[in-house]
Design a protein around this nucleic acid. Sequence first.
RNA 1: GGGGAUGUGGUGGAGUUGGUUACCACGCCGGCCUGUCACGCCGGAGGUCGCGAGUUCGAGUCUCGUCAUCCUCGCCA
Length: 593
Amino acid sequence: MKGLKRSCYCGDVRREHVGEKITLMGWVNRRRDHGGVIFIDLRDRFGLVQVVFSPEVSEEMFEIADELRKEFVIAIKGEVIARPEGMVNEDLATGAIEIYAEELHILDRAQTPPIQVEDDINSSEEMRLKYRYLDLRRKPMQDNIILRHKVKQAVRNYLDNKDFLDIETPMLTKSTPEGARDFLVPSRVNKGQFFALPQSPQLFKQLLMVSGLERYYQIVRCFRDEDLRADRQPEFTQIDIEMSFMSQEEIMDLIEGMIQEVFKIAGFEAPTEFPHMSYHEAMDRFGSDRPDIRFGLELIDVSDAVKDAEFKVFSGTIAKGGQVKGINVKGGVDFSRKDIDELTDFAGIYGAKGLAWMKIKEDGVQSPIAKFLAENELNSMLDAMGAETGDLLLFVADTPKVVAASLGNLRLKIGKDLGLIDQDEFNFVWITDFPLLEWDEEAKRYVALHHPFTMPKEEDIDLLDKDNAGKVLSQAYDLVLNGIEIGGGSIRINNSKLQSKIFNLLNMDEEEIEEKFGFLLEAFQYGAPPHGGIAFGLDRLVMLLGGLETIRDVIPFPKTQRATCLLTEAPSMVAEAQLEELGIEVEEQIEID
RNA sequence: GGGGAUGUGGUGGAGUUGGUUACCACGCCGGCCUGUCACGCCGGAGGUCGCGAGUUCGAGUCUCGUCAUCCUCGCCA
């Protein structure tokens, strides 16, 4: 660095430094060449400052400055000068001063960057990912990274103050059934055997409770080999927490305190409202277990009103155990036929076979289905829906699952399209009282809704048999922010008999239980404390705090939707010798014409 | 595995019913300019229109296939 020592950051120079000789290092953000004088905006992580090159200060440096281009890395030494009156830049934190450069050293030259380093995105995400190191020079991206850091720091401070220990758990671990597809890692020492990367440190944190560590946390990478989405990456970061001797309510209280701390440190007002809602109520009113309750447009059940209707689409569906529900789009009477067709197609994505509609006009109800409904049926529908002149009512008749998915998502779409959502609001809700198990029609067995280590509600434990298991509720809780699940947890089973019973209900035989979870059941035989915990999706939390649309913007080096890294071009082929060492053969792709 | 959107100089976009020299902005290069800060002015370079077939006298434009990126259903305890 040419023997120079950086004396301060570009963004930190202020009026009080006037008269001082300082040394700055950074990147050339912009060059303005006025012939007789050259201005450089010098950038480092902390901001921008204007550097002036004038032949009156140094003829030699002025000539070198002529060579400077965008993204050159330079060091300059010079005096801080107060800008003359009228030349102060109010938009810049350092706008009251400028540096008259007496020394200039080019530390590294730069080719013209393929994407421009500017605040406003001027390139496709594909380009940004390929040149991520340049994309990350942009201030909005650096802000995201800094926000992420602050959130992690707030979590650490809060939990540290509450006697939690940061404890690491293995990344090379055991593949388990249930849950997401595992990423596998072949074992060279034990050919033909595989480690799995953790989907979460679930079992280890429970074992740490058995070990008596009492309060554990870890900000930890987790891996799930499933298809990607805007808010799903194959590797993501979890704030993982577990504690002993705490009830569900105590855990939720503690977590609310953590969220408040995170918001404060991230520069937001601490949220105060953390309402609770049962899973059943969430599904009923919003068609989702992660309801966005920033707006209304709730789902209303009209099954009772139409169960005997001549209209078979309604009555027939109810007879088969289905339901008919609707949403009331206030003032939606102006929706065109084309608009409604589009909504119908949208509902179809989620399995709805159709979308019935009614427009409430001055002169009565306009609807293609009105003629199939008796007057009293129509009236009780309108009554249930709270219909008024100017409203558009939309109905779906199907299984409860399809009704919830289609109307729930339709509600979100219309809420967004109509601008019913306050974008600046942070709205939390705890979802509780989840069913412990869900019947999987395809697999013909129960599957765990949360995970198989979740403690049933104490009063429901007697119901744990093949016939009634679907009715059992669990001591599980999800924290939902603005319609996105940011955390989920539960009180865990700490008793090997009960745990075995759950495994049995999940259709695991004794042999499989022993092979997959023998170590856990054994651990529970040596004095396991009551315990529970929660895990937060750090990426999603930071995304929401940053007002962003995708977690890729808060992950320095994310994968594309096809799970590749455009920067490193991973994954890639490996040398034959590497495979041989692992005892792995790759099947040739057979091409068929 | 399914549905949808997009792909045009370095970057982002426009390109009409298929029609002859593919346009704009930013960036880049050169010149001028001592107060700009998205500097300005003048000039210039830069294109296998993602790739491959097909239709046509003629394809950036139409058809089919394919690849890539994004959104999404399934999937994600």
